[in-house]
């Protein structure tokens, strides 16, 4: 464990806590894409298949349980909670995320480190996570008013993967044969997808204005 990875995990944890806090306290999911949340639940389900068979550390297991629990409960809130679901903007959240799942699965079947079920599912979760934010970014472009909790959520979610890239660089230079191209490329693509969001987020922060993305 290095500082970049710990910071990345904490940033990721904060992003889901910010979102859960928003949904649980103000009982609203305005501006939040259910499709991105469903993709994330699928990412964690596919990535943490070995949560009970492959014990790494208490930290690792606890964090996996938190990410699984939070992503599925956010999906539950947005789908079934009688108050929260009313604030879900379903005719704006129209990104066909099923068109993301299949290509990621096919790509994972083609490009992976080992052709085993667990490894393919793990690789699938990497590719899917790289594009999971797209429905949310599209929704942000559409909904003019981005409340700052949703803005913070997206920012933290992008920042965590950027910190993970620093972690991979650190591990590459400190651990022999630590080479994982698939993880690195998909992590880089994921972070680049946030590039323009980061730009506008920083601009709004610098000019102390409300965050709004150009149409």
């Amino acid at each position: 464990m290095n500082i970049f990875r710990l910071a990345g995990d904490m940033t990721h944890l904060f992003s889901v806590l910010v979102l859960l806090l928003k949904i649980h306290t103000i009982k609203s999911c305005a501006g939040v894409s259910l499709k991105t949340q469903e993709l994330y639940a699928l990412v964690f389900a596919a990535r943490y298949l070995d949560i009970f068979t492959n014990y790494i550390s208490l930290y690792n297991t606890v964090m996996k349980l938190i990410f699984l629990g939070s992503s599925f409960s956010i999906v539950w809130y947005m789908r079934y909670h009688k108050i929260v679901r009313r604030s879900y903007d379903k005719d704006q959240d129209t990104f066909r995320h099923y068109f993301l799942i299949l290509p990621c699965l096919l790509l994972a079947l083609l490009i992976n480190e080992k052709f085993t079920f667990k490894e393919v599912m793990w690789t699938f979760s990497l590719y899917l996570e790289a594009v999971a934010i797209l429905p949310q970014l599209v929704l942000l472009q559409r909904t003019r008013n981005i409340d700052n909790l949703t803005g913070q959520y997206v920012f933290l979610l992008g920042a965590y993967r950027a910190l993970y890239i620093l972690n991979w660089v650190y591990r590459y230079f400190t651990e022999p044969h630590f080479v994982h191209w698939i993880t690195w490329v998909s992590g880089l693509v994921q972070t680049l997808l946030y590039a323009d969001f980061f730009y506008y987020y920083f601009q709004s922060w610098k000019n102390n204005q409300k965050l709004h993305l150009p149409a």
């Binding site: 070995d50 790494i56 550390s57 651990e175 994982h180 993880t183």
Partner: peptide, 10 residues
């Protein structure tokens, strides 16, 4: 040994 250390990441 085969390095599947990256699996220790979340």
């Amino acid at each position: 040994e085969v390095n599947d250390d990256v699996k220790d990441e979340l």
